[in-house]
Design a protein around this nucleic acid. Structure first.
Lengths: 143, 143
DNA sequence: TTCGGTGCAAAAGATTTGCATATGT
DNA sequence: ACATATGCAAATCTTTTGCACCGAA
């Protein structure tokens, strides 16, 4: 089921930090990589449980923190305050519906370029950014 | 102690929604306006308690949600997932230096326009946004 | 054999809810 | 008078921790 690159990255991280390779960690990594973005720990736990009933809540929480430390996942907090994880990847931004909680990712070259321009104007070297638009999605704005 | 504008805004909202003006709501509004930005409900509760021991936790939580609905406060979630409130003000974008902590505000018409375009593409009605660029400022990037 | 890992249950921390009482309108 | 607001305690929800047992190195 693929994910070789990520498995190796995790293995390297574990070895480097004298931590152990366990099947739970592999299972959770796979489930995370297969899940839609913005999964919560609880969603992951449920998904994993359906195939592997012997994995505990705690292990999912602990492993997700591990994946963050290993640079494989990113933790984000949107309006509801629940931790959500996404795969560490290129810059992208979010539209968040404050009514139903829907989260849509978008990318906009124009904005990226404008950011570079702004950064240059102020002499900044930009390393990362956070850009979230909050409002009502198509389904919720009619109500 | 000032805050006339906000008090009137709250009163208007309460009247419009057939809600009641209570002294608790005024006290909490005042405390919120006087607090530093990014206060948590708990901090507010403690600050209010020192002068008004008869106000309950619950009322602070409920009133902060009310202030958000009334457009007087904004709720945010940073890395720890605890709700923090700040005064609703014009949307500034920020450049944040992760070395020296300098914060520079900027505004960019191009970005604003792009946001509108994105929102339209996804059918969103955008109410507010958050846009932060993190990096090193001119003074720090040389080191 | 030795540590770190796991899973359960219990704790902790933040926020919400049920309900009897109090209070604006 | 009536409907909403309040405050307490209890419930809920997410996440963390303590601890006995398990398993990778």
């Amino acid at each position: 089921m693929g994910h070789e690159v990520e498995r190796k990255a995790l293995a390297a991280y574990l070895e480097e930090h004298k931590l152990k390779r366990t099947k739970q960690r592999e299972i959770i990594l796979d489930a995370f990589l297969e899940a839609h973005d913005h999964v919560t720990s609880e969603e992951l736990y449920r998904a994993i449980r359906s195939c592997n009933p012997r994995i505990g809540y705690t292990t999912v929480y602990r492993t997700m923190k591990l994946l963050v430390d290993a640079g494989l996942a990113q933790e984000r907090h949107f309006a509801d305050g629940i931790a959500r994880y996404e795969i560490e990847h290129e810059h992208h931004d979010h539209l968040v519906c404050t009514k139903c909680g829907k989260i849509v990712e978008f990318e906009c070259q124009m904005i990226e370029r404008s950011q570079d321009e702004i950064a240059e104007r102020y002499g900044f070297l930009v390393l990362r950014h956070r850009h979230e638009l909050y409002g009502h999605c198509g389904d919720c704005r009619e109500e």
